[in-house]
Design a protein around this nucleic acid. Sequence first.
DNA 1: CCAATAAAGGATATAAAGGTCTTTTTATTG
DNA 2: CAATAAAAAGACCTTTATATCCTTTATTGG
Lengths: 145, 145
Amino acid sequence: MMFSKSLEYALRAVIYLCNESSEHAKLNINQISTAIDSPEPFTAKILQTLVRRNIIASTKGPGGGFFIDSKAKPIPVIDIVDATDGRSAFERCGLGLKECSESRPCPIHNEFKSYSYKLQNLLTKKTVQDLARGVSEGKSFVTNF
Amino acid sequence: MMFSKSLEYALRAVIYLCNESSEHAKLNINQISTAIDSPEPFTAKILQTLVRRNIIASTKGPGGGFFIDSKAKPIPVIDIVDATDGRSAFERCGLGLKECSESRPCPIHNEFKSYSYKLQNLLTKKTVQDLARGVSEGKSFVTNF
DNA sequence: CCAATAAAGGATATAAAGGTCTTTTTATTG
DNA sequence: CAATAAAAAGACCTTTATATCCTTTATTGG
Ligand code: FES
Ligand code: FES
């Protein structure tokens, strides 16, 4: 696939929020970007779009910040992809041809579509909560040293 | 994966050359970029780097142009990747962490590495000639309508 | 109501990828 | 040898992704 920086930061932030925040323990942008070691204003922009899409929540003012109600419905990873990069990388021709179809396939069409389908499937089944679990159990990390 | 434009044009050009050129039937940059519908000067740059890497050959002067001796040794697709995009996308952390290792994996490390390994393997085994064969048999295409 | 705090919004800056143009070098042919 | 054809080389331009900055809006506690 090759994730954009926006998607990388979005995923790390959302996983972090999933473990560390709640309606009663909001985190401000400085806390988040410090934790996941991402550029603060850029991360703010990204989180804003996630809020607009109702993937995460936020409140303004003192004591405000971003949070995820982790008891809320599971968030498929593909939702974060849709919010940041969109799905065009999956749909276009892997060799950049204008048309991508079974009737006029490029030489990598079959492999590419098969992979592309499997990956979308995986991203749809896998939730942010699944990824967050590994982190909370100390098996994986979203932070640099 | 997500190929760069350079890699897309490189692959289409090399596949085209594989079928349509030989030491005695060289193609100039105008013929190539017209055929594969790619920006001519940009494609020229890309082919220059492939020549420098001895993936394709070229001669200057009237009657000159680019060519592949198709009876020459098979060209693994990974060679084109190495020449254009390099392999860093395979090696870095999929979530952009500074370190990527078994001892400090991010939440997608295992899936990412497994996919990354399989893809590199596929690109190593699959040759440009394999891809060109489909095109010469009319089963696939490197050109737009 | 006021001061402080924090996100939202919008304009702007920087870097990298993608693409073009001009000049130089090399080879061929009449 | 001159004219021409073609790639090589290098400077330059454009667009998109990445990132920052500044102003506005909403919320809270005193
Ligand atoms: S035609 Fe290229 S991936 Fe479908
Ligand atoms: S640590 Fe993220 S892919 Fe290895």
